[in-house]
Structure formats: C-alpha cells, structure tokens
C-alpha cells in the first residue's frame, strides 16, 4: 500500500518536472520562431512582395496592417509553404520552409494554424465533421469521446455550441468565420496565422474574437501573426504592429507609437476608425 503511494508521488513529481520543462521550452520568449528576410514574390508581371523583413518572437502577437492587395495574405502563405517565394528567406523554427521535404513540411504545418480570409469550411461536411477533420486526419486521434469533448469545448469557446450539426451553407458569414477559427484552434497550434479574423463581423463578435486571440496567446503561449483592417482588433491583440505598403514594410512599433508617427501614410491607417 505504502509503496504504491510512493510510486504515485514519484510519478507525480516526474510529471511536474516534465510539464515544467515543456512550459519552459514554450515560454522562452526571446527565441525567434518566424524569420523573414528579403522576401520576394511575383505572379507573372505582378511584383507583389518586393522586400519583406519580419522577425516574430515566441509568444508574440504581431499585427500586420496594409491596404488591400499589398500582399499580406501572400506573405503568410509563404510562411506555411502554400506559396513558394521567388527570393529571400522564410524560416520557421529555424528551418527554411522552401527547402523542406514533404514529410517535414507536414510536420511543420501541424504546428501552424492558418485561418483563411474566407474561412474555407469544407462544404460537404457538417460543422462537427469540419472540426473532427484535423483531429482524425492530422493528429490521428482514435478515441471518439476525446474527439467529441474537444469539438464541444472549442465550439463553446467561439460561442457556437448549438450550430454543431449544421451544414456550412446554413451558417451566416460571421458564424462561418468562427467555425473556421475553431477548426484552426482545435489542434492547439504553436503558431497562429490569422487572415482578417474579424472582417465582416459585427462589433461585438469582433471584440469577442479579438479577446479570444489574446486568450489563446495567454493560455497556450501561441505566437500569432494577425492580418487585419480592424483597428480595435489591432488595439486589443497587438504586441507590435507592422505596416505594409506596396510590397514592403514601411513602419513598425506599438499602436500608440504608430498613431503619433511623423509619416502621414502611417497615421492615416489609424485615422479613419478611431
């Protein structure tokens, strides 16, 4: 009896140490997880990205602002290897994305959550099946009750518990966006790339989503890049803001710094909404 107890205590302590190690590893905030240098990308004659430089540290929320069509979405697609850059470096966790083999790329992608601008829900599946898809196909979970728990939990987080058996075509635009968000969050990725998470949502839901992004960062030490046109979202979530224009980064700093920038173009991003 006593020896059992001792064993239990022993495992408890070992476990504690393990979790400590993990959280230390995750919490190492000076480490650069995304490193982009001199990134170039063109489509035919359309030079979209000319010279992008960006370093994102672990646990940091970086907001990217920029006019429509300046290549914000293209930039984050280069990070997950969905687009291959024409030049420059894109390194995630110290590895050059373009040079990865299929298997390594898959492993990397499992650590990155990507919220598409359009939500990109799988039309032919219900909300539940949409959320189960990454669990069964990527994490290869088998235990159905574990899967159900996760699905229900994440849906509650985005406030959509009662939509679980609906088809995507029966959801409103904002609901679809939230399901898309739930589908990316469900695997607890280390890096989150949000492409306009609040666009097209009402102010209240927008704020909730922004708070959720912040929570994710606090709770799981998630590193995030957030593309947005929504100043309130930037205000809530950003540790740092970069502004992009015409394929280059033109300014960087906190929201307060950029609001008082000498550059009129930079200030104009903040003027219209606040």
């Amino acid at each position: 009896m006593l020896s059992w107890f001792r064993l239990a205590v022993y495992f408890f302590i070992v476990n504690m140490k393990e979790t400590e190690k993990v959280s230390q590893k995750k919490g190492n905030s000076s480490e650069t997880v995304i490193h982009i240098k001199g990134l170039k990308k063109s489509f035919g004659a359309n030079d979209v990205l000319k010279n992008i430089n960006l370093d994102v540290k672990r646990g940091e929320n970086v907001v990217i602002l920029g006019k429509s069509g300046t290549g914000k979405s293209v930039t984050i697609q280069c990070i997950v290897g969905a687009l291959v850059p024409d030049g420059g470096e894109v390194e995630v966790f110290g590895e050059e994305v373009a040079a990865l083999k299929e298997k390594q790329l898959k492993e990397l992608r499992m650590k990155i959550g990507f919220l598409f601008q359009s939500g990109a829900l799988y039309d032919s599946m219900t909300v539940r099946e949409n959320l189960e898809f990454p669990l069964t196909r990527v994490l290869k979970l088998k235990d159905q009750s574990d899967i159900n728990n996760r699905v229900e939990e994440v849906l509650e987080n985005v406030g959509l518990s009662d939509a679980i058996d609906k088809m995507p075509s029966d959801l409103s635009g904002g609901m679809r966006k939230r399901v898309g968000l739930a589908r990316t969050l469900i695997v607890n990725p280390e890096i989150m790339l949000y492409d306009e998470p609040t666009t097209g949502l009402d102010p209240i839901t927008s704020r909730e989503i922004s708070e959720l992004i912040l929570q994710m960062q606090k709770k799981y030490k998630t590193t995030s890049i957030i593309i947005t046109h929504d100043m309130e979202c930037a205000d809530i979530t950003a540790d740092r803001v970069v502004i992009m224009n015409d394929g280059e980064y033109i300014a960087e700093g906190s929201v307060a710094e950029l609001k008082n920038s000498k550059d009129g173009l930079v200030r104009s991003f903040f003027k219209s909404t606040l």
Binding site: A82, A120, D123, F133, R137, R183
Partner: peptide, 25 residues
C-alpha cells in the same frame, strides 16, 4: 466542378495547410 469550387474557396488549400492530405482524401 466540385474539386474546382473547393479549390476556389480555398478548401483544398486549407486541407493542405492543416497538414492533412487532400490527395488521399
């Protein structure tokens, strides 16, 4: 048409980027 619309609405991209295997599925 089905795969074409999945491509256009970025569903195939989403599968790829999540680390799932759209070719297999």
């Amino acid at each position: 048409a089905e795969l074409g619309s999945m491509k256009v609405t970025e569903q195939i991209g989403a599968m790829e980027v999540s680390g799932a295997n759209p070719i297999q599925y």
